[in-house]
Write a protein that binds this DNA or RNA. Sequence first.
DNA 1: AAATTACGTCAGCCATGTTGACATATTTAA
DNA 2: TTAAATATGTCAACATGGCTGACGTAATTT
Lengths: 180, 180
Amino acid sequence: MADVISAQDNGNTRSDHPLSEQETVALIELMFFAYRDFVSDPDGILGQFGFGRAHHRVLHFVGRDPGMTVQQLLDILQITKQSLGRVLKELIDKGYVFQKEGETDRRQRLLYLTEAGEELRQRLMGPQMNRIRRAVALPEGNAAHLYRKVLYHMVSPANREAVRDWIDRASLLGEQKDGG
Amino acid sequence: MADVISAQDNGNTRSDHPLSEQETVALIELMFFAYRDFVSDPDGILGQFGFGRAHHRVLHFVGRDPGMTVQQLLDILQITKQSLGRVLKELIDKGYVFQKEGETDRRQRLLYLTEAGEELRQRLMGPQMNRIRRAVALPEGNAAHLYRKVLYHMVSPANREAVRDWIDRASLLGEQKDGG
DNA sequence: AAATTACGTCAGCCATGTTGACATATTTAA
DNA sequence: TTAAATATGTCAACATGGCTGACGTAATTT
């Protein structure tokens, strides 16, 4: 299916009705809250293994593209090889990742997950998949409103009241400041 | 207006057509790429001031709710007071934030932005507002597709080709693995 | 008068990012 | 075929921003 993002866009999209300031700020804040909670489940699991978010990223992307080179991984993560080196070494030492010499280019150390690595990757991905599916399972609406609802539903249920309260109050404060 | 998230939902939303695995994983990855780029503009500006992301969060939320207490800020950021203490002290020392003794409760140190603080806050928020507005200015579609497009457009234009390539290739790999 | 609360601070630890320098094996180009 | 570039690894040092634990002070509540 390869249902990608759909080609015809180069960052120059227009609209006659840009979002209001308050709407936009609310989305900025939802981005913060949503991302915070989005990574919280994996963080909890990783802690039990003595790993961190950086390990998660490596596990995830290597699992998605087995046999990728170190350089490809660096390009995707956009970190330095020294940063990667630390976590990669730990993942290899603990038996979650292994390397194979490249066949056409023997300088390369192609990256693969072990069975334990793939298991852990799936376990980390589970809660995030649930979260996304729950968030996206929503009735239609206009783009901004929908996006806002989606992000809101990325926030953990336990945190939603606090987030909603904040967004409500902050929106009111913002309207007062700018005079509506 | 206070157009909040809309009340009637407690995290138990259902759908007959949950997202496919590949769709869902693509969204997980877009969340990563989008957030990474979303914070990159502020990060650049902050660097010029000797500040980091933590300072940005404080500036943002204090600016949104002037006179908030330290405890309220801690509740929103969900970090420890020791972590906050460091950045807050720097912001105060450099003249971007100031504190006022609470009137009803003189133990409280209410938080406010100075003029310089508000200026910096606006400057940091600008690129993020642009990014959100650009991302949300899109034609309609179904919820998942729309959300995906929105997140995609949160990625910096310079990174979109790489992100698109990754998502395309990884989706194909995933379909092959699971057999379509 | 005692307990709690709001806040500040000191000290140290951890994870994960950075730069810079250097080494080794392999491939590519002159 | 030698020289240059590439892919990777590693050492060392540093910064940011989380964390825990302990302790102190002023103000409020019980």
